[in-house]
Amino acid sequence: MILYRYIAEALFYAFMILTFMGAFMAVRSQLLMHAVIGLAVSLLGIAGLYFHLGSTFLAVMQVLIYVGAVCIMIAMGIMLGNTPSQLAEKNLKGRNLLLAIGSCAAVFLALFATLSRTGFAPAAERIGDMSIQFVGENLLLQYCLAFELISLILLTAIIGSIILARGGRDGAVK
């Protein structure tokens, strides 16, 4: 039994490394296509973290929606937009590196100081479990508004992106 704990812990470290390596690849790579691959790797690592948090459902949804849909869509956007060789030479250049690192370190230190001083007490009593059945019942009964809002937002996004990108290569709307 204790061996399983150690295997799970080693997997947790592996997912954490995957998340941060992918994230660094996404923000530091010159080519945008490499950045998308880094994003996909990082999102896979976050799916593993969701698995460790006890939610199989969200881990599967993360792989389906983020890695499967969002990353592919961004890759399509890169291919339809600028060519990678044009972007490679000017991406990540000419920005103030010191200022970026300083501001990010300040934000992280503020968050870290806050959460290291705060004690988060667990709930006195918990209802239900992490199962997909309980999530489904809650999503369709008590938190129905969130479900309807997701569908409304996605419909609006589909219609909006069709209207925006409707014209031909010369920008004329037929």
């Binding site: 007490a121 709930a123 209802i127 969130a146």
Partner: peptide, 16 residues
């Protein structure tokens, strides 16, 4: 996972 009384709410919000 660690503090909420209803463990479905966070999953629904992450899905949102």
């Amino acid at each position: 996972t660690f503090t909420a009384p209803n463990p479905a709410v966070g999953q629904i919000y992450a899905l949102f």
